[in-house]
Nucleic acid binder design. Structure first.
Lengths: 106, 106
DNA sequence: TATTTGCGAAACCGAAAAGTTGCACATATA
DNA sequence: TATATGTGCAACTTTTCGGTTTCGCAAATA
């Protein structure tokens, strides 16, 4: 099952998990405590996140710590870049209009 | 059915539609020509995109032109901001490590 | 007016997703 | 060694999703 990062962040629970483990690694049980679902459901989400390399795991005895692979998040940023260019251009055009209006008033 | 912008961009066809109409407004038929599906399927995607205000429509006779609501894209950017902070911090920390190593070599 | 064209909406279908339950396995702990 | 704990995985169910087909409606055109 080939997962996509955009599909991965589509689910609100997964976005919440991402936010949770962004700053510190956590075990599935600890993560599940924050949600209204079973540990297995969280485990499934973690698997999906791991599959698309948004999350990495580190075993420590029988516990497994999950943490965010922050580098992967840049892919979204990269995709957004083309649109950022557009809104910045539009902003500059608006800026141009405003400054032209200013000149006319002088 | 309450739609979410993250769910909207999860589908690859919808991302392609977004890219298509980012620079110029297009009719459903014109959009559908670029894909291997029916116009109705595209129409469905456009409805979803419209529901979460990622796309706006403008009627002109019997044709309806769809264009990207670029402002809405900023929501993704805004969400990404918290993670951008993280990877920038990590980068600076790495930078710190590197410059410390440099000092030690002197 | 009759016909074509552009479109959305509803009904339906198959595939995929998200959740639950039950189980197996390894690692701790008594 | 027996038991408790942390975990992943597989089977199953329900819901959602993306697509097609069919239809109805309004605007353009003959």
């Amino acid at each position: 099952m080939r997962r996509d990062i955009f599909q991965a962040i589509a689910d609100p629970t997964r976005r919440a998990i991402i936010a949770l483990i962004a700053l510190q690694a956590m075990t599935p049980n600890a993560i599940a405590e924050n949600f209204n679902t079973t540990r297995q459901a969280v485990s499934k989400h973690l698997r999906i996140l791991t599959e698309c390399e948004l999350v990495k795991q580190e075993s420590q005895g029988r516990e497994i710590y999950y943490s965010l692979e922050i580098e992967k998040m840049k892919e979204i940023d990269k995709w957004l870049e083309q649109y950022r260019k557009i809104w910045e251009t539009r902003f500059n055009q608006l800026d141009q209009v405003l400054s032209n209006l200013k000149k006319q008033n002088k």
